[in-house]
Amino acid sequence: MKKIVLLLALVLVVSACKVNPFTGKKVLNFYPNSQIFPMAFAQYDQFLGENKVLEGTTEAKMITNVGQRISSAAERWLTANGYPGYLKDYKWEYNLVKDTLVNAWCMPGGKIVFYTGILPITQTETGVAVVMGHEVAHALADHGAQRMSAGTLQQLGAVAGNVAIQDPQKRNTFNQAYGIGSTVGLMLPFSRGHESEADRIGLQIMAIAGYNPDEAAELWKRMKANAGGNAPPEFLSTHPSNDTRIHNLTKWAPLAKQEAAKFGVTSFQ
């Protein structure tokens, strides 16, 4: 049984590599769009049916407009860099939900939600573009499917350990150590890496869409002030610290402007 589990894990890893067009790196992804997108679309529709979606307001229209500009910029970049049709299965949707949560999120296939609670932090359309670029980037890079793939490997590791260890006491010790070690040592760094990758890709596509990437660091300064020192230590978080993000976004903004210049965009909103 142990050999079967390990063999299955090896087959999954070898067969599940996909190239991220924005980084050129191979990523772990067991789930094709044809499998994961329909599930995500159904869950998104269910969420919308259970929450108050704002339609027709100035803010709701702005969310949609910004999303369309940024997803169009992403398609321009992909086409120009040899990936025409990369987004053919995506069904972009951008909704504003009435809720005090200071958050926004994206599901595989381009299903995005902003909560009204984040708008006092974004403040302007360009601030919204910072968050939107980040969320669109998650969809472009298949981060949802990658997280599911990593979770599958984590579960297979636990199964292999439980099969291999016969002694109940040792098995219990293994499960406790494995749970903490695989989460803090692997899953959380994996998630933080995705967040940083989405920040960098998001800067690039928001700049191509004509939004000023310098605003990204300013937005995260406001996010830091809003958090008021309540964030957990970075190594225990799914996200980089606010200070790390501010530092990275400041460093990456000039590079995003250089990329936008390749598309004739040299002035920014």
Rank of each mutant, 00 (worst) to 15 (best):
V66S: 11
T64P: 07
S71Y: 07
R76A: 13
I63M: 10
R76T: 15
G82T: 10
G67Y: 07
N81V: 07
K61R: 14
R76N: 14
K61W: 00
L87Y: 06
I63R: 02
G85E: 09
A73N: 03
W77A: 06
A74R: 03
D89F: 07
M62H: 00
V66D: 07
I70Y: 01
G67A: 05
T64W: 08
M62D: 12
N65R: 15
I63Q: 04
K88A: 13
K61S: 09
A80N: 13
Y83K: 15
A80L: 05
G67H: 09
G82I: 01
S71I: 08
D89N: 07
V66Q: 10
S72I: 01
E75M: 09
N81R: 12
S72Q: 11
G82A: 11
S71G: 06
N81S: 12
G82D: 02
W77D: 04
A73S: 01
P84Y: 10
I63P: 03
T79W: 03
A73P: 02
I63V: 15
R69L: 09
Y86C: 11
G67F: 02
K61Y: 00
T64N: 10
G67P: 02
D89Y: 10
P84I: 11
G67S: 05
L78V: 01
D89V: 02
L78R: 07
N81L: 05
D89R: 06
A73G: 06
N65D: 14
A74C: 07
K61G: 00
L78T: 08
W77H: 08
Q68W: 00
L87T: 15
N65G: 12
